[in-house]
Amino acid sequence: MYDFAYHRPKSLADAVSALKGKDEARPMAGGMTLIPTLKQRLAKPSDVIDLGAIKDLAGVKVEGSNVVIGAMTRHFDVASSADVKRMIPALAELAGMIGDPAVRNRGTIGGSIANSDPAADYPAAVVALNATITTNTGKHAADGFFKGLFETALKDGELITSVSFPKPDKAAYMKFRNPASRYAMVGVFVAKTGNTVRVAVTGAGPSVFRVKAMEDALSKNFTSAAIKDIKVPADDLNSDIHGSAEYRAHLVGVMARRAVDAANK
């Protein structure tokens, strides 16, 4: 790891000002991606702004029919939150599938979303549940937030403060793990709210994406049978030693059907 200047602001305002004017500064939430990246010397930030001491960025609250999760809320706290389990059990389950217990004790929702790792789990929930991402400067709709591989709509110096998830009628997340890393090789989050169905896929492509054809079929008939013949094109999907694009495309179908079945249970 290259050395850097370390900051541990106690407030969001201090964090924002610590980032200001430093092109090579990096905010750090749970550090579960950033620290391994630094260890491999794949990044060389001048400054690391640790958000861990900003108390009011962590916590879960219910606002009307929304669950609002602070950016610095750890995966473990989302997975075990009574509010999340009651309102959106699929989201609690997803949080409980990220990494391993020690990672869940450190990793945060804000960090995961801001990083936009193609194999991260949370982006699928954000998109499928049509969440709203609040930052120090404004709000982002889920659609359009994840721009590509490790790329989001966040501007320099913009920090996520919370994510608001509307409660769906039904939802489920199915994850097919990479046998080695255990990240999502394909993860499909399906959510039904009224007559609207959203299907979001993570792990398979450069960034989370929706499957329109499945959404259309499922909004008419929310059963796995309704999507059994829908194939996702393999063209733009990821390919590696564990999963070819064709295999991933196939798994999207399988995981989507299983997610629909689970949501219907």
Partner: peptide
């Protein structure tokens, strides 16, 4: 390991299991 996977480094920080290879010493201040 150097990719935060093997868990040989797990300790408890404030009562919770943490991979001490994926946490800065200053974070445990």
């Amino acid at each position: 390991c150097d990719t935060s996977q093997c868990g040989a480094c797990v300790v408890h920080v404030d009562g919770k299991s943490v991979k001490s290879c994926t946490m800065l010493a200053v974070q445990a201040d």
